[in-house]
Design a binder for these strands. Structure first.
Length: 416
DNA sequence: AAGATACGCAACCGCCTCTTC
DNA sequence: GGAAGAGGCGGTTGCGTATCT
């Protein structure tokens, strides 16, 4: 003989929970614990089945549930774990304190799955979709799922984590540019000729980035006294971004794939470990190298992060063409020029400010605009530091304080 | 301004495994 | 050892809200 039936469904309430029901459930569990879910509704005075009570508690009322948007780290972890565990949401949730399996499942279905698809990655297998944009050849260099050994798996997981980070950062950045600059999307253009023209512009850009950069700089230089030119610059940049973006969605992940394809270096355990602990290291380095005023830091040898106060802004894309034939790109870097106290800083001053998309999730929201960028984080090449400090008077040319790393990554501070 | 569409998410459904008898 | 309920889990739905046209 088994147990008696769980619940009589007749007469029990379904649908959204009312605040009163929530209160009854919370009060009861606080006083008595949930005990047998089957008996709980009756004891708590609820016209619900035990299953409904359990779901309401575990997915919504539990006090340790974390609210708010998923952080970049959480997203990366979900993607990484999903590549190993598949749709084992409860197992994935076990690695994300405060997140429920239901929440993770919903987030996967509404955000992450779509994002992987846009990257040309199969969200089920986490491998490139077949024959998409000539990536199959690169994919053939990936270890077969059936042939995974521990080392291969570790490498691929790391590469996927990098890939996801890379792509998400780029997506966020491109979306930021699009929303701030207000340009139309090439993919939604109803004008094929215009789209073709922009594609050709992009090809020219890639073939001769220096020439295009110079052009953009000329426009940028005249923009200080000419709002129309600023718009023109932003329009040009926007169209380029659009072009890159549209190609990007189709062909974007070649670079991380090549990481796998040429993964000899990834087979180095030290590098794999390095990837996994990168964030922690940067966290330590951040506190180590930021000045008391918090304006500069050195995150790794050869790179210095700075937080300049922008008075105006020009953004230039520098796409790295990986394949002449297929027009494949890795994530474009973005060269930034800006003015401070009437002095213009840009590449023409032999300084390379590039806001690595990799850094962009660290930006606080609404800071990356055409006219008021207050605390965008740039990576400044080391040989530019002296130049910056001499022009700016000191390295301390940022008037805003630097938020803590954790604050930058907190859901409230990420501008999606 | 209003209708259409897309999106996000809480909640339900049904299946599976574990536990109890 | 087998029957049957409890609990857990993943898939799906439906509704409220936001965005687009």
């Amino acid at each position: 003989m088994g147990r008696t039936p769980c619940c009589e469904k007749n007469g029990l309430k379904k649908g959204p929970w009312t605040p009163d029901e929530d209160k009854k459930l919370m009060d009861y569990i606080k006083r008595h614990g949930h005990g047998s879910w089957r008996d709980l509704p009756k004891k708590a005075g609820l016209l619900r089945c035990g299953k409904s009570c359990r779901l309401r508690w575990t997915n919504y009322l539990r006090p340790d549930i974390k609210r708010g948007k998923f952080s970049i780290e959480e997203e990366r972890l979900i993607i990484t774990l999903h590549s190993v565990l598949g749709n084992k949401w409860s197992a994935i949730a076990a690695s994300l304190p405060g997140r429920t399996d239901n929440e993770i499942k919903n987030y996967w279905n509404t955000h992450l799955k779509r994002r992987l698809l846009s990257m040309g990655i199969d969200p089920v297998t986490h491998r490139p979709l077949p024959d998409l944009c000539g990536l199959s050849n690169a994919a053939s260099h990936l270890p077969s799922p059936l042939g995974f050994n521990e080392k291969n798996l570790k490498c691929v997981i790391s590469a996927q984590a990098v890939m996801a980070d890379h792509q998400m950062a780029t997506d966020l950045f491109l979306e930021s540019l699009r929303s701030k600059f207000g340009f139309r999307n090439i993919s939604s253009s109803s004008d094929p000729a215009w789209a073709m023209q922009q594609s050709e512009s992009l090809r020219n850009w890639v073939r001769s980035p220096e020439q295009c950069l110079a052009q953009a700089q000329i426009m940028g230089a005249s923009s200080e006294n000419n709002a129309g030119s600023i718009n023109q610059v932003h329009g040009t940049i926007g169209r380029i971004v659009d072009s890159v973006d549209s190609l990007h969605h189709c062909k974007s992940s070649i670079s991380p794939l090549q990481v796998v394809q040429n993964s000899e270096s990834l087979h180095s355990p030290s590098l794999v470990d390095g990837l996994q602990t990168k964030v922690k290291q940067e966290d330590v380095l951040r506190s180590q190298f930021f000045s008391k005023d918090g304006y500069l830091m050195q995150s790794e040898p050869g790179l210095v992060h700075a937080q300049p106060m922008f008075e105006d802004l020009a953004v230039d894309l520098k796409g790295h063409q990986v394949s002449e034939e297929n027009m494949n790109f890795d994530t474009p870097n973005v060269n930034v020029s800006f003015s401070k106290n009437g002095t213009r800083f840009s590449n023409e001053d032999h300084m390379s400010f590039f806001a690595s998309p990799f850094q962009l999730p660290l930006q606080t929201g609404s800071n990356f605009g055409a006219s008021q960028v207050s605390s965008g984080m740039c990576v400044v090449e080391p040989n530019a530091l002296d130049r910056i400090t001499s022009l700016a008077g000191s390295a301390n040319f940022c008037s805003s304080t630097v938020p803590a790393w954790s604050d930058l990554n907190s859901p409230d501070n990420i501008d999606y």
